[in-house]
Design a protein around this nucleic acid. Structure first.
Ligand code: FES
Ligand code: FES
Lengths: 144, 144
DNA sequence: TAAATAAAGGACATTTTTGTCCGATTAATG
DNA sequence: CATTAATCGGACAAAAATGTCCTTTATTTA
């Protein structure tokens, strides 16, 4: 569904949001540890998110990553997915034709579009804050 | 969503079904031409489908691939997807945890499972025959 | 101002996916 | 029985995704 990079990106963003709720800035090392991801690869992904203004980074001692409280509401999953995986899951054809096109649809088009629309709506309506709170209460997990 | 191999596999299977409705057996070369896919790679995928009894192959002159009329109804997309991509789309966690587990769910679990269930239902209920008929009538396309 | 800390970024390495090539096998036909 | 047409199967090649390492840059603090 999502690339590994995107999965790490979402997990990382949720963890940063959770810690930012406590006013804590976190380092790549801590993030990678807490979401069980490869450190250097995770660093690359965080750079992408930072460049896309999804998370905020601070260099130097006491630096790290954080997300402002308002941004946790404003940042929806679709923004993270788009920043990392691009829009292929939104415009791609389920059977691999150049692009999805209702004028010349593939045999699976109608059924595929239904699913994709649901997915898209879900991603557009799910905020980082929402995901972080489940974690905070101990209902959900970022690693096992 | 699906791998390239799986996309080619579905397109190929639908094309074979369409031609089998006319009693025509088709070669790898014809299939690759008609679905716009790499020939040798497509051959590999057809072997997989053949080994999984999803399509039938005949060697030698006048040979090729075909699907019996009854099988077009019996073969659902989920069988093709499972034969090529395995069951990762059915049991995988949306955020990349080892496996999806409602006991220790990731933050996206509930919402992800909804989508995945819809996708799974759709694949389980869509037959090759159904997809081939849309093509036959000229409503849908396997290449552009 | 020097040392230490943390992200940024580029080059490189590994693994997986996608794709190619070619000889072996099977079967139809003259 | 020889030829030919087709899939089968293994080895290989290329490309993309994933992952690592190391140097540079910015910033804090002693
Ligand atoms: S054309 Fe294939 S999904 Fe729309
Ligand atoms: S645990 Fe992540 S989707 Fe179920």
């Amino acid at each position: 569904m999502f690339s590994k990079a995107c999965e790490y990106g979402i997990r990382a963003a949720v963890y940063i949001a959770l810690q930012s709720l406590d006013g804590r800035r976190v380092s790549v090392n801590e993030i990678a540890e807490e979401i069980d991801s490869p450190i250097a690869f995770t660093a690359k992904i965080l750079q992408q998110l930072s460049r896309n203004n999804i998370i905020h980074s601070v260099k130097g001692p006491t630096g790290g990553f954080e997300i402002a409280r308002e941004d946790m509401d404003a940042v929806k999953l679709n923004m993270i997915v788009k920043a990392i995986d691009g829009d292929k899951i939104y415009v791609g054809c389920g059977l691999g034709l150049k692009e999805c096109n209702a004028q010349k649809p593939c045999p699976l088009h109608d059924k595929f579009v239904d699913i994709r629309t649901d997915l898209s709506k879900m991603l557009k309506s799910t905020s980082l804050f929402e995901l972080a709170t489940g974690l905070e209460v101990g209902l959900t997990y970022l690693k096992r």
